[in-house]
Design a protein around this nucleic acid. Structure first.
Lengths: 225, 225
DNA sequence: CCTTTAAATTGGATAGACCAAAATAAAAAT
DNA sequence: ATTTTTATTTTGGTCTATCCAATTTAAAGG
């Protein structure tokens, strides 16, 4: 569906190389020939070759040809790599736990200063236009981190920072497609407020529930795509 | 010498990204705009973007745009993200969360095979004499890990393995003094059995509660010294 | 066989066009 | 005023058609 042709071609060519059908140091057919062979335009072939070159699988010599590099090493494909990175569901499940508990802890034991920081982060996030900008995403991240910091457990903070960084990789593709709507970002703000209110009111259970409900909603979003 | 234009463009764009001029999650200008900006054809811009995408620096979304990916440290383990050495209380608090949830999950969704592994680990632990030997501690660790593995979340397993290794350092000195009794080790076995029973009976809430009660007991032990 | 020369091949880059899906703006309905 | 529909514009994906210059290959000449 969303698999682009140049990606498909790149994958097929890589497969040929790794299987030995195209041997190291050998020259690939000319771009025009490949185009005819794969029944696509030369433009598309060219884009596929760019991918392979960037993946250090071939080397394109100007006005000479594309040569298979003498590596053929790791069987791990650069393209459809089955990375060991945790999937969205795993990450969200972990976030649900950690952030939920952080909410609970900060509502229970949080100092005045820590709660103020959360309120400030919430305000700051709400003041950023809910557009798909780095500023908004960063403000949201900051809000969540401020809660983790209030938990007074350094593991919570470091773990959460790690989890927040994991939004890349092949499996997150659908995630990106499903969450980039203005409506979702507004819902995020509403939830932030809810969580903040519960923390300020010193209601640990409510704070945890609010946070977990939000992440459950994100998980359902992910599963539906 | 013969640096190709698309390589030059790719380099410049990457530089902008790494320098922070183009922030993570932000969208790059449209290909047509970039072409005008760099005074090259759209084809060339496109080839440069192919390179960046293959390098996992950006993600090109069909009919949407090219987005700067969050700076993802390649194959960075969750362990490597932890810098400071957490204290006993932090570790136990985290274990309480993770292991409790793992019990819940495995009791809820665990497969037959996974639950069998837990039962086996419990049996193995019970068969080791409750002395202060590496064998006993290892069997206990194995039991807890088997539960995490049943949660089907690799993050749980990885994190728990890390937490279990943290039993060294000055702050843990008191811990050892207070827990290295035969009575405690027997209590551990009793709890293991309790948790195992709850999981086998498919009672998620009870399983979680049993595990958390056990860790709460450990925490209280720590605090009393 | 070696050198020189001419022709064909090849990758680099451009221009312009079309399409379908996505994002946005405008209009209508509530 | 807000939500829902509906046009409109934007955007990436792909293709066709050229032009260029260096390189490779073939041909010609010695």
């Amino acid at each position: 569906m969303s698999q682009k042709v140049y990606q498909r071609i790149a994958g097929e060519l890589e497969k040929m190389i790794r299987s030995g059908e195209l041997k190291p140091m050998s020259r690939l057919p000319a771009e025009r020939d490949l185009a005819a062979q794969f029944e696509v335009s030369r433009t598309t072939i060219r884009e596929a070759l760019m991918v392979l070159e960037a993946g250090e699988i071939i080397r394109i010599k100007d006005r000479s040809g594309a040569y298979v590099l003498p590596v053929a090493r790791k069987s791990a494909s650069i393209l459809q790599s089955i990375e060991a990175t945790p999937g969205p569901h795993e990450v969200l499940q972990m976030r649900r736990l950690i952030e939920g508990e952080a909410c609970f802890l900060v509502a229970l034991n949080g100092s005045r200063r820590e709660i103020d920081a959360i309120v400030d982060a919430n305000t700051a996030n709400a003041e950023v236009p809910p557009d798909d900008t780095p500023e908004f995403h960063d403000a949201t991240k900051q809000f969540h981190l401020s809660i983790a910091q209030g938990s007074e457990n350094s593991l919570f903070v470091e773990l959460l920072e790690y989890l927040w960084e994991q939004k890349s990789g092949p499996l997150w593709e659908n995630w990106y497609g499903s969450t980039r709507s203005r409506q979702n970002r507004i819902a995020v703000l509403a939830n932030n407020q809810e969580v903040t209110d519960a923390i300020v009111a010193r209601r640990p259970q409510a704070a945890r529930t609010a946070m977990q409900r939000h992440i459950d909603w994100m998980i359902s979003r992910f599963l539906s795509y």
